[in-house]
Design a protein around this nucleic acid. Structure first.
Lengths: 181, 181
DNA sequence: GTTAGCATGTAAGGAGTTACATGATTTT
DNA sequence: AAAATCATGTAACTCCTTACATGCTAAC
């Protein structure tokens, strides 16, 4: 995997908050957000639904038509009231210094919180990214061969682009505040 | 972690092929190559040295001075003859469609093989990256909210930059061939 | 009606991180 | 000489991936 359990849970809840859905479809959605590098495996997905059911954060409305037990038809899930509360509470306290894929999930859910929290997350991410850039620049590359140096040079560029992107996101949020939210 | 076991082994062997070294130092080196996102943990590092010792790919020359058993001084390792063979054989058969960090290790070791194999690896990576870009472009973004769309747009850009970088690497290798290796 | 893809689910095995534990070396 | 950092090592815990298994649905 690459997605931590709490993050996968968050991604599933986030998807369900936009309407009922089922496992296979949710997976496709999550893969679009974080999956340009890897796919969420079914062995992670279904146990996650089980977890969320057990905690009462989602509920199982059965299959669409037949409603047979043990059937392999689509099982439609939707967010419960506690699920909504949990989601809102999680989004308000996420840690912006997270692995790339985990942060992607956070970013994709930015539309579900207020501007204040969005700025907390974006600012936080901007800081850790800036720190990473500083770290890379502090490395002495002497002793590295041509290809290793090229790799570090490229990595630096990727991080610098990331930083510029976050800066533009922060700027957009702040100008939205200026214009009166 | 994020580095697979075989990749970590490869990274360690690669470092040792440039001269004897010890765990702590090797870790710093590997972190420079793949570590701008995460660090190799000691719980992964030392068991890896154990593995390589057991397979006879590296050998333990003892500590620098005292040579006490059970001591916590630097333990210097160096590559054995079979270690060299193994490394060369692995590099010749690596899979360029690998997770980002695993590929980074491959890339950093490109200087240890011939141009032919370098082109195999770079070409292979170029293809999977191009396929990823095509996949992203095939996605219908309708139904996604503003932030999710922005995330996908940014992801596409990152992948496109990656592709351009690989293209330039391939071009450099090919022009090296033209100029007579 | 048969093939291919949609859809759900489980279990074993593998593998990493975290936390813990200890000793050596350098700096203040 | 105390504190900080370098350095090595182990084990429990967590948790993911892989492989397996089954049923439904649409297309040819």
């Amino acid at each position: 995997m690459v997605l931590r359990q709490p993050t996968l849970d968050l991604a599933i809840l986030g998807r369900l908050s936009q309407g009922p859905s089922y496992g296979y479809e949710v997976r496709k959605h999550v893969n679009m957000v974080v999956g340009y590098l890897h796919k969420v495996s079914f062995g992670s997905l279904y146990p996650a639904f089980r977890r969320l059911l057990d905690r009462g954060l989602i509920c199982d409305c059965g299959t669409e038509r037949p409603l047979l037990v043990g059937s392999r038809s689509r099982r439609i899930y939707h967010l419960t009231h506690s699920g909504e509360e949990y989601l809102a509470q999680q989004l308000a306290t996420t840690d912006p210094s997270a692995l790339t894929d985990d942060f992607s999930v956070q970013f994709s859910l930015l539309g579900m919180t207020d501007t204040r929290n969005r700025l907390r997350i974006l600012h936080g991410r901007r800081e850790v990214t800036a720190a990473r850039l500083t770290m890379i620049d502090s490395w002495s590359l002497t002793g590295l061969d041509r290809y290793s140096k090229e790799l570090v040079r490229h990595s630096r560029e990727v991080v610098a682009d990331e930083l510029a992107w976050l800066d533009s996101m922060v700027a957009a949020e702040e100008s939205a505040i200026q214009r009166g939210e």
